[in-house]
């Protein structure tokens, strides 16, 4: 089962981080970053199949592909911003973490604007 491997990896990495933190605090951070990346890379194949199903669904609905692309971009930006801010918060730098999240929100807002405008246009058209 995949989940058992992931949990085992997480627990081992946490134990190692606690041990190494006593001698050298900075290596604890490296281990936590490495673990986060490895767990994500293990989940890539599952994520790819999910995205594939979403692609097929949207093709059936003959929806605008542009919207789907920006939704995927927004998900990607959200994930990376979350990853970066969590790493910064882990090492005690919560101010940097909040700045990273702030930048992520702005970028997502920029990507979400076209969708918002198209919805508004639709509503205006439907108005009697």
């Amino acid at each position: 089962m995949e989940i058992i491997k992931i949990v085992a990896l997480g627990i081992i990495a946490t134990i190692l981080t606690v041990i190494v933190k006593q001698y050298k605090p900075e290596y604890g951070m490296h281990i936590s970053i490495a673990t986060g990346v490895i767990i994500f890379l293990l989940m890539i194949s599952k994520l790819a199949s999910i995205l594939e199903v979403i692609h097929e669904l949207t093709n059936k609905l003959d929806m605008e592909v542009v919207y789907l692309k920006s939704i995927f971009k927004i998900i990607g930006i959200a994930y990376i911003a979350e990853f970066g801010s969590q790493v910064c918060r882990d090492c005690g730098e919560s101010s940097i973490a909040s700045k990273v999240e702030f930048a992520g929100k702005i970028l997502i807002m920029v990507l979400a604007l076209p969708i918002l405008l198209s919805v508004l246009n639709l509503i205006i058209k439907l108005m009697p």
Binding site: H30, V37, L41, K69, F72, G76, I80
Partner: peptide, 26 residues
């Protein structure tokens, strides 16, 4: 020691970013 570990971690992070870029077509 720090440089060696940094090189490893940066390689991993680079791998993560390229994968996410390819995955979400960013």
């Amino acid at each position: 020691g720090l440089i060696i570990v940094l090189l490893m971690v940066i390689q991993l992070i680079n791998n993560l970013f390229t994968t996410v870029k390819a995955m979400f077509e960013m």
